[in-house]
Design a protein around this nucleic acid. Structure first.
Lengths: 238, 238
DNA sequence: GCGCATATGCGCGCTAGCGCACATACGGCC
DNA sequence: GGCCGTATGTGCGCTAGCGCGCATATGCGC
């Protein structure tokens, strides 16, 4: 694995990019590049979390579980965030599962190194506290959305959020996977996707989904999308 | 308002109690006693949060909202916690509402004072980071529970959690209020409460609810209750 | 004691989403 | 090119929980 400083192409994670240049340069010496391979788990419930990940591309979903086959997405992390908050909070494990939902690349750092970097104060812990707040808001909003909104609306929200994370309008995903994210049956996903296709908002065939009319999707999506996005933007401005 | 050190009766918040004695003594000089009056809001969505609260009795519920009349409880804070996490995370406001669900007393501290106390490192920020983790877990679990479990199960969970917070088996609450907590119609609460009464697990009449058989309630409640409780206990042991 | 605002107790029709059971389509691997 | 595992489309009965309407209780102010 190459140390992150040995790169010619500047990759960037938007959270790290908010740090003062000097601190950022220092952190790069502690970071290494790693692949986020599609479908793999960054950690499973109960695992000891040994690294934190700052994606520079790709998206990781955080799933809360309850018994066999009962999954629900409670957070999504892309270039704007970090996977492994429990480490920052001084806890070794998580009850959630973190899975790579869109392939990409991340800068990663040993858990012990992160803790050490945060001990002296400075920009990093302050940044991560704010980020934690946005994740807490995200999770609370997900709870509301999952409770009150239809599958169609939640699907639209999920697609837009994923687009923001992937910075692409086209991505791979199975209905089975989507059903875990939304916490509904696969058949329900099928129907909702059919509805959106009929309206020509998306095209979806054999695991490849393309957003055709993002503007129209934004028009029908619930407020939860906007709220979550705004909460991140307002406390972690560019 | 009396300064917290001027008391004869030792009141205690279990979070603060985990601090080294010296640090605890120091913090007491910054804390003042205040009443948590039944039904009042500690803060509303968008309010600037000026104090953090460490309840020594009573319970505060955190509600996520979405439009008019759409509420959902995403967290509960009693003697074991703190109200006002956004302050700790360096953020001035919250999108949630914090309401006093069971009357009591809290030690409170100015937001600016909390920030200052956390700057130098020490036990307090470490403690609050761990507490933040337990709240994140709590919220994620609430999302799962609200998505997958029946009203009956969720009511049972809510009652047990409230009992733990209030340290009492009897409390005031209207069906209307419960409906906001659980994110269901009042009529749904009525029916679920009727079911539990028929089984003689609770008695509920005119705003006064009494848990008659906590053991039996624990037998029928979903795992979410245990999970949330354990997560707190394991990372913030006595 | 009267009146009114607030909390309850129910019934009934309706719909979203579940559980289950199939009938396909791809897409590699051999 | 045939086989098979994985991903899809779809239909059908069922149930929890919603929306709505309305018939009480209760308690407080005057």
């Amino acid at each position: 694995m190459l140390p992150a400083t040995n790169r010619s192409v500047p990759v960037s994670n938007r959270l790290l990019a908010k740090l003062p240049r000097k601190e950022y340069q220092h952190l790069l010496t502690k970071l290494e590049l790693t692949n986020l391979t599609f479908g793999s788990a960054v950690y499973e419930p109960g695992d000891i979390i040994r690294h934190v990940y700052f994606p520079t591309s790709g998206v990781v979903s955080l799933l809360a579980t309850e018994g066999e086959g009962t999954n629900l997405e409670v957070g999504m992390v892309g270039r704007e965030g970090m996977v492994g908050l429990p480490v920052f909070m001084g806890v070794k494990t998580s009850r959630n599962r973190a899975v790579v939902q869109g392939a990409g690349v991340a800068l990663r750092m040993k858990a012990t190194a992160l803790r050490k970097e945060c001990e002296n104060g400075g920009g990093l812990p302050r940044l991560l506290r704010r980020y934690t707040h946005s994740r807490l808001t995200q999770t609370a909003q997900a709870a509301v959305c999952n409770r009150f909104h239809s599958i169609d609306a939640r699907l639209a929200r999920w697609l837009l959020t994923t687009r923001d994370g992937m910075e692409a309008e086209k991505f791979r995903l199975t209905q089975e996977f989507l059903s875990s994210m939304l916490g509904v049956r696969r058949e329900g996903v099928n129907k909702a996707a059919g509805n959106l296709q009929r309206e020509k908002l998306i095209s979806y065939s054999r695991g490849i989904l393309t957003i055709l009319q993002p503007a129209k999707l934004e028009a029908i999506v619930c407020q939860c999308y906007r709220i979550t996005k705004e909460e991140y933007d307002s406390f972690l401005p560019e």
